[in-house]
Computed example of a mutant assay.
Amino acid sequence: MARERSGRTVAHLVLATRLKTLREAAGMSRTEAATALGAHVATVRRIEQAETSLDEGQIHTLLTAYGAGAAEMEAFLGKLATANLPGWWHPWRSVMDAWQLDLMSVESATRIIRVWEPALIPALLRTPSYARAVENIRRPDLSPADRDRRTELLMERQKRLRLQKTRIWAIMPAAALRTFVGGAGVMAEQRRALRAAVERSDVTLQIHPLDGPCHAMTGMPAVTLYRVDVPEIPDHVVREGDLRGSAEVLSGLQAVSAYHVLLDHTCVVAPHPNKSKEVLS
């Protein structure tokens, strides 16, 4: 994913896909579209793959070349104006990781988020105190103010996911409950928050016991799978790296399907979600 796509919204991505569909319906190649635009063919490719911003003048020219009617053109340009507005996450851009910038728009259209967290409480279920303690440990390179801002962003993500009724399905090891992050008070608060979370209809939590069997995700870093509810946008997988703020973002069908299968196998091996309530009590 190109970094300059970081300001995009789902509406932006949908419009880019719509442009490609209109071109193909008009029987035009990218080279022909580029000629009509007076630009290199790579410009059309970047527009259709949402790798660059959608400029109103360029889009008007392309829509005219594709034979779009006045009503369709007006509707498209109206949606473009909305799509070009900054995403809700814009105030936190300076402290976000590159992969977060790319994925925020996808997250805003996600129906289910599936998470494997190998050592800690999954981020989307963390309390502010626990999240801030993790930032202190993992990002000593940042200023205290920036770590606070990153914690604020996580809390805002959690809030917005609840409002859009996105389901969180997380799997973690029981060791995470015994790994002190931020001290006893922080851990006690986090346990209480998890007990409340598993009572919600939008949260499923499975906890692998300390003496449980090896499973498909054993030894893997944190993995998040975004099941997207917009036809034009593929599902995505984020596999976090070892370096600070690094992650691999995958959206190819083969890669996403492979992680889907791995998570399915891990869920089958893990105790039923009801057991999580017993572990947390």
Rank of each mutant, 00 (worst) to 15 (best):
Gly38Ala: 02
Ala196His: 14
Ala270Tyr: 07
Glu240Ser: 09
Ile113Asn: 04
Val14Ser: 09
Ala34Met: 11
Arg138Cys: 02
Ala33Cys: 07
Ile168Phe: 15
Met1Pro: 04
His12Pro: 01
Gln254Phe: 08
Leu280Thr: 04
Asp97Thr: 10
Arg46Cys: 02
Ala70His: 06
Glu48Met: 09
Ala119Trp: 11
Val10Lys: 09
Val95Arg: 01
Glu4Ile: 15
Thr204Met: 13
His60Ala: 12
Asp229Val: 03
Arg157Glu: 04
Ala98His: 05
Gly7Thr: 07
Leu250Val: 01
Arg178Gln: 03
Ser251Val: 06
Ala216Ser: 11
Ile47Met: 15
His265Phe: 02
Val237Asp: 04
Leu153Asp: 03
Asp264Lys: 12
Lys277Val: 11
Ser201Leu: 03
Gln100Pro: 01
Val228Ile: 11
Ala68Met: 09
Ala75Ser: 12
Arg195Thr: 03
Gly7Tyr: 01
Asp242Lys: 09
Glu72His: 01
Ala193Ser: 14
Lys20Ala: 15
Val181Tyr: 07
His60Asp: 12
His260Glu: 08
Ser6Met: 09
Ala131Lys: 00
Arg195His: 04
Gly252Gln: 12
Val134Pro: 00
Pro273Lys: 05
Ala11Trp: 00
Leu205Ala: 04
Ala83Lys: 13
Arg114His: 11
Val238Arg: 06
His260Trp: 01
Arg5Lys: 07
Val115Tyr: 00
Thr127Gln: 09
Pro144Ser: 08
Val41Tyr: 13
